[in-house]
Design a protein around this nucleic acid. Sequence first.
DNA 1: TATTGTTATACTCTATAACTATA
DNA 2: TATAGTTATAGAGTATAACAATA
Lengths: 142, 142
Amino acid sequence: MPLAADTALASTLRLSVMRLARRLRTERADSSLGLSHLAALATLERHGPLTPGELAAQEKVQPPSMTRLLATLVGAGLVTRTAHPTDGRQVLVSISREGGTLLREDRRRRDAWLARRLRELEPADLDVLRQAAAVLDRLAEQ
Amino acid sequence: MPLAADTALASTLRLSVMRLARRLRTERADSSLGLSHLAALATLERHGPLTPGELAAQEKVQPPSMTRLLATLVGAGLVTRTAHPTDGRQVLVSISREGGTLLREDRRRRDAWLARRLRELEPADLDVLRQAAAVLDRLAEQ
DNA sequence: TATTGTTATACTCTATAACTATA
DNA sequence: TATAGTTATAGAGTATAACAATA
């Protein structure tokens, strides 16, 4: 793949992603929780129990930010803390049943707009998006 | 396409897009300008001179937020204020030559980071992204 | 009186640095 | 010592409410 093509794709893709991200941000339902709280909840649901440090790394925030974020989530009963089985310094946080419920409810509302838009697409376009989602995740990694 | 599949894809795609958008946001140039400053600059470049109120509406922020944002941009010499020709209450703000230069430099750097990441992908993934960019744009439309 | 823009103030989110406890 | 997590503190960014100037 020639360098020039990569650069052109980078320009195009960046604009497309930022444009849709902005649209999604404005179209989201007004939940009482911020976007990072919901992202952390979603990660806990996907990965299962994690230590605060692992979760901070996963969410690409610093540990103190995750501490504060978790304080809110624990206070709201959406995640629970348990002692690490072998290392007394560490803690394990897990999503609670209420957290899972809130996540599903929130997704249902927030995805409504995007799902509506998706229903207007051709099956081939949907396939492209399914494959693209994984690649976009890989780009955001590390 | 069944409804359930659309909803699942909406969830996945939203998370992927927001995740990459966040990454792109953090990989901005060392301009020491926030994303909203750059967005306001870009709008001024695209639309030409606007009043603070019009710019606030365009950027979907409240007028006081735009006031503070403009104070930074004017202080940095990136936009200029001029009196409104007929209405003494209003002000017109325009992007300066330095503002335009900074905007182009910022775009170049963001593209560079993404292009570097793209070079690590398989050709098949790049094809997926090329097709996806167009579909993402269509989703963000309207 | 209505409108435009600004100032005053507070809240949210995130960061770095310092501290506590365990290994 | 080194590591995991927390607390203390600061800096953006944005909001609402109150104010000044002009229409």
